[in-house]
C-alpha cells in the first residue's frame, strides 16, 4: 500500500514536470545574461574557455561560496567520523595484490601530471580546478587503496587546503583594492589562447585545484581510516 501511494506520487510528479517541460522554449532557449557574456567575455576576461570566465570572473563569489560549502562538508565528515577512528590494535583491510600495488606506483606520477595539466589549462580547454583537483585527489588516494595500513599526513593536507583557500580570498581582495571589484581579472589579459593569458584566472584555478584536491583526498583518507563495523 505504501509503495503504491509512493508510485502514485512519483508518477504524478513526473506528469507535472513533463507538462511544465512542454511549456519550455525547446530548441531556441532565450539567453538573457549568456548572450552578453558570449559577446563581450573574450575581450573583457581574456579566457578562451568561456565557462571558466563565468566560474572565476563573472560569478567568482559563487565559486568562493561553493568552496566554503565543500569545506563545510569535509569538516563535517571529519567531525562525524572523529570518534570512529580505527584503533591501533585493529586489523586494517588486507593489502592489495601485485597488480593493484604495481599499478598504484605506476599511475601515481601520471595522474599527478594529468591533474596539474588540467588545472593549468583550465582557461584554454575544457577542464580546470575542479576536475584537475579531483584527479589529484585520486592520485594521492590510489597508494592508500593498495596499502590500507598507511595514511595521508593530515597536517600537510590541512595546510595545503588552508593556504589555497587563503590565496583565493587574497587574490580577490587584491583585485578589490586595485580595481574596486572583488575577484576582478587583473595582470593583463595576454594573447588569447596562450598559456599565460587571462590574468589572474589561472592563479585562481590553481588555488581552487589545490583546495578541492586536498579536501577530497583528506575526506577519502578519513573514510579509509574509519573502523569497520562488525557484521
Amino acid at each position: 500500500m505504501r509503495n503504491f501511494t509512493s508510485l502514485l506520487f512519483a508518477g504524478g510528479l513526473g506528469f507535472f514536470l513533463l507538462v511544465l517541460a512542454a511549456d519550455l522554449p525547446v530548441g531556441a532557449a532565450p539567453m538573457v545574461a549568456g548572450e552578453g557574456i558570449l559577446g563581450q567575455g573574450p575581450e573583457a576576461v581574456g579566457a578562451a574557455n568561456l565557462v571558466t570566465a563565468v566560474v572565476l570572473a563573472y560569478r567568482g563569489i559563487d565559486t568562493l561560496g561553493e568552496l566554503s560549502i565543500l569545506f563545510a562538508a569535509a569538516a563535517g565528515v571529519g567531525l562525524i567520523l572523529s570518534g570512529m577512528r580505527r584503533r591501533a590494535d585493529q586489523r586494517p583491510d588486507p593489502e592489495g595484490g601485485f597488480i593493484l600495488l604495481a599499478a598504484a606506483d605506476l599511475l601515481f606520477p601520471l595522474l599527478v601530471i594529468v591533474g596539474l595539466y588540467i588545472v593549468l589549462h583550465g582557461h584554454l580547454t575544457p577542464g580546470g580546478g575542479f576536475q584537475g583537483g579531483v584527479i589529484l585527489a585520486a592520485a594521492f588516494f590510489l597508494p592508500l587503496l593498495g596499502r590500507p595500513g598507511d595514511s595521508l599526513n593530515h597536517a600537510v593536507v590541512n595546510w595545503v587546503e588552508g593556504l589555497a583557500g587563503g590565496a583565493f580570498v587574497l587574490i580577490g581582495l587584491w583585485a578589490l583594492a586595485v580595481k574596486g571589484d572583488f575577484l576582478a581579472p587583473m595582470l593583463g589579459k595576454g594573447a588569447l589562447g596562450s598559456l599565460f593569458s587571462a590574468g589572474t584566472l589561472p592563479l585562481l584555478y590553481i588555488a581552487v585545484g589545490l583546495k578541492v584536491g586536498a579536501e577530497i583526498a583528506g575526506l577519502m583518507s578519513t573514510l579509509q581510516e574509519t573502523e569497520a563495523a562488525e557484521p
Binding site: 574557455n49 565557462v51 571558466t52 588540467i118 575544457p126 577542464g127 580546470g128 575542479f130 576536475q131 579531483v134 584527479i135 585527489a137 585520486a138 588516494f141 587503496l145 577530497i216 575526506l219 577519502m220 573514510l223
Partner: peptide, 17 residues
C-alpha cells in the same frame, strides 16, 4: 567542461567513496 567533471567525480570518485 561539465562532462569532464561528471566523468571524474560522478563515475570515479563517488563510486570509490
Amino acid at each position: 567542461d561539465v562532462a569532464m567533471t561528471e566523468a571524474a567525480v560522478g563515475a570515479g570518485l563517488s563510486g570509490v567513496i
